[in-house]
């Protein structure tokens, strides 16, 4: 049923697009017809694939690194209230500065290679991951901690068996946001300065008015991003087996 829904959604999108192109007679360098994008995708497949690989690697590396760093930061804040007081302003500040404004500096520091793009993705997902994990842990019920204390538990086992599992549903929320926004970091990084990746490819195509190729790259990027999101979502549902997704309202 899920697949059918996807196909129906995709097909109706393509049909609407085609109708729009035909009825408005918009020039192909503004909005190419779906057929044109499809043939560009087929023709450019061998060129696009290496670029996709680069961008996907940046996104996945950024996601892994950002999640690890975010979790470490959240754990530090939970374990040391003193450090928390110092870390929290830094964390908020890191979000106040637009990542887009940092992109040129990151490229300057880390070079045209993959590192600057990974750093961008890390910066973008760091906050949702840290914040969701930290607040998830902080919301552990007081009585549960009291019970553990009376049972003679040490703080590390309370963290492991009680606090961290308790934070998982909230953390999953942050990770889903991270999976959805991580591609932004990678693409923006590529726009600012790179020689590989889908962002780079799109910029090149744009400069040559090859809008169909741009759309082909965009299509691949969307497929990769949606795929990543659903993979993460699937894994989270498996890991957090005790929380069954449910509908609040029924039809």
């Amino acid at each position: 049923m899920k697949v059918v829904r996807f196909v129906v959604l995709f097909l109706s999108f393509v049909v609407c697009w085609q109708i729009l192109v035909v009825t408005t007679g918009v020039p192909h360098y503004i909005l190419p017809a779906p057929g044109k994008v499809y043939s560009a995708l087929c023709n450019e497949w061998s060129v696009l694939m290496p670029h996709l690989l680069v961008t996907s690697t940046e996104i996945v590396l950024g996601l892994i690194l950002g999640t690890v760093l975010g979790c470490l930061c959240a754990l530090t804040m939970i374990l040391s209230p003193l450090l928390k007081k110092w870390l929290l302003p830094v964390l908020v500040m890191s979000q106040a500065i637009p990542v887009f404004a940092l992109a040129p500096i990151l490229v300057l520091w880390l070079g045209y290679g993959m590192a600057s793009k990974v750093a961008m993705a890390v910066l973008i997902i760091f906050f949702p991951v840290t914040s969701s994990f930290y607040h998830g842990m902080q919301r552990t019920e007081e009585d549960l901690l009291e019970l553990s204390r009376m049972m003679g538990a040490g703080s590390s086992s309370i963290l492991r068996f009680v606090v961290i599992p308790n934070a998982m549903p909230a953390f999953a929320g942050g990770l889903r946001v991270a999976a959805a926004v991580a591609p932004i970091g990678a693409i923006v990084g590529e726009w600012v300065g790179s020689s590989k990746g889908l962002g780079f490819y799109m910029l090149q195509a744009n400069a040559r008015m090859q809008v169909d190729k741009m759309f082909a790259a965009l299509f691949l990027l969307s497929v990769a991003s949606v795929g990543l999101y659903f993979l993460i979502d699937f894994l989270l549902l498996k890991i957090i087996y005790w929380e069954k997704p449910r509908e609040l309202y029924h039809e």
Partner: peptide, 8 residues
């Protein structure tokens, strides 16, 4: 067995 688990 939570208590024993927490105490290892």
């Amino acid at each position: 067995m939570l208590g024993a688990k927490l105490r290892g």
